[in-house]
Amino acid sequence: MTKAHYIKLILILGSLTALGPFSIDMYLPGFAQIATDLNTTVASVAMTLSSYFIGISAGQLLYGPLLDRYGRKKPLFIGMLVYIAASLGCVFVRDIDTFIGLRFIQAVGSCAATVASVSMVRDLFPVKDIPKVFSLLMLVVGLSPMLAPTVGGYVTDWYGWHMVFVILMFIGIIIMLAAQFGLPNSYEPDTSISLKPKPILKNFANVLKEPQFYTYAFTGAIAFSGLFTYVAASPIIFMDIYKVDPKMYGWIFAFMSLSFILSSQLNSILLKWYRSEQLIYGALLTQSIIAVVFLVLAINNMLGLYETIGMLFLFLACLGISNPNTAGLTLAPFSNNAGSASALMGAIQLGLGALASFAVGVFVTASIYPMVVIMATSTIVALIVLLIGKRNIIIKH
């Protein structure tokens, strides 16, 4: 594989992976404007985030078997068409319930891109290179929360929030065309894979029985729910509690994303000296300590705007190291049914993300304290799951 071809693959796969985060982050600065336009509350608008997470979680399970049965490109193309149509629908919504429903459909479409990109990483690269490839994808993905809310803040300010969904629709069209014409057929369709519910469930059950899968999938997903908690709570924390304007919120969000980007690139370097298992343990232990300190500061009312930004920056940096490694180790045992494995991994991660964002919508209203409690709890539970699950794993190096 030439360097130019390698870079092209990373850019297209990264764009597919980034579509979901972009669709989540770009409309966040418009929450107050959307609430006013649709005669509802910011907390109700936050439910469109929960419905997106539910859609992207459920959709993962739908696309996993389809990608193994029909190859990668056909289900990806159909999913992208669904995403484009739903994005267009969001431009014309007049009430919050329709908006919540369309965001669910948009998510079901976008997760074709997520599952296909993860499956294709497993198809196209050797197992030992997968954590490094995921770190490079994190660089592309990390640019989305830097760019999306900042661009979204200005677009919302100048043209209104509807224009955000027009832009998302065009991004969907560009990514769909890039994937169709720029990616190889990385996997031959497997006609032996049944699409009846019983064999699909049996296939998922077989994946779930693998100790390496369930240990690292759940460790990664529970830890990563801290990021979903932050994303869902951030409009309320920064714009409602700390009273920053939408444009400043976009810049704060972009700054936070730097921690995720820089640490995921640091992970690529650390992999030269340390194994993925060591990096996951170190990152989670550090994250637990940061979360406990964060909680103590919150309980004692010692958090202003800058202290909150600093603690969140450190917390998110740990995820940039643990996430590529948990993803790589989760998928490593699977070659034949990587589509189902990546779908199940994504469904677990985003299902827990939906729960976290729902908890934010219910509890985070006038205080930062509930957000910090959720983040600290998820981190410590992830560390416990890792320590218990590791006893059952035999990893071949």
Rank of each mutant, 00 (worst) to 15 (best):
K3G: 06
H5K: 14
Y6S: 08
K8A: 09
L11S: 13
A18N: 01
F22N: 12
S23C: 14
L28R: 00
P29F: 08
Q33W: 08
I34M: 11
N39K: 13
A43S: 13
S50N: 06
I54H: 03
Q60F: 07
L61G: 08
R72V: 11
R72K: 12
K74I: 00
P75G: 13
G79Y: 02
S87V: 02
V91P: 09
V91K: 04
F92K: 00
V93P: 03
R94K: 12
R94V: 15
G101L: 15
R103D: 04
V108K: 03
M120G: 02
R122C: 11
R122H: 01
K128W: 01
D129F: 01
M138R: 02
V140K: 03
M146L: 13
L147E: 06
A148W: 11
T150V: 03
G152W: 00
G160N: 01
M163P: 05
G172L: 00
M176T: 11
Q180A: 08
P184C: 04
N185Q: 14
D190A: 04
I193H: 02
S194E: 03
P199V: 14
I200D: 08
N203Q: 12
F204H: 04
A205N: 01
N206T: 14
P211D: 07
A221Y: 09
F228V: 05
F228H: 06
T229M: 00
Y230G: 01
V231Q: 02
I236V: 13
F238A: 02
P246D: 08
A254C: 14
A254Y: 07
F255L: 14
S259C: 13
S259F: 14
Q265P: 07
N267V: 15
K272Y: 06
S276G: 10
E277D: 10
L279A: 08
A283S: 13
L285T: 15
I290F: 07
V296Q: 07
E307G: 11
L319G: 08
G320H: 08
I321E: 00
N323I: 10
N325A: 10
N325V: 05
T326Y: 05
T330E: 13
A338Q: 04
G346Q: 07
A347E: 10
S357W: 05
S357E: 09
V360T: 12
V360Y: 07
A366W: 08
V373R: 07
A376W: 01
T377V: 15
I380Y: 03
V385R: 05
V385W: 10
L386P: 06
K390D: 06
I395F: 09
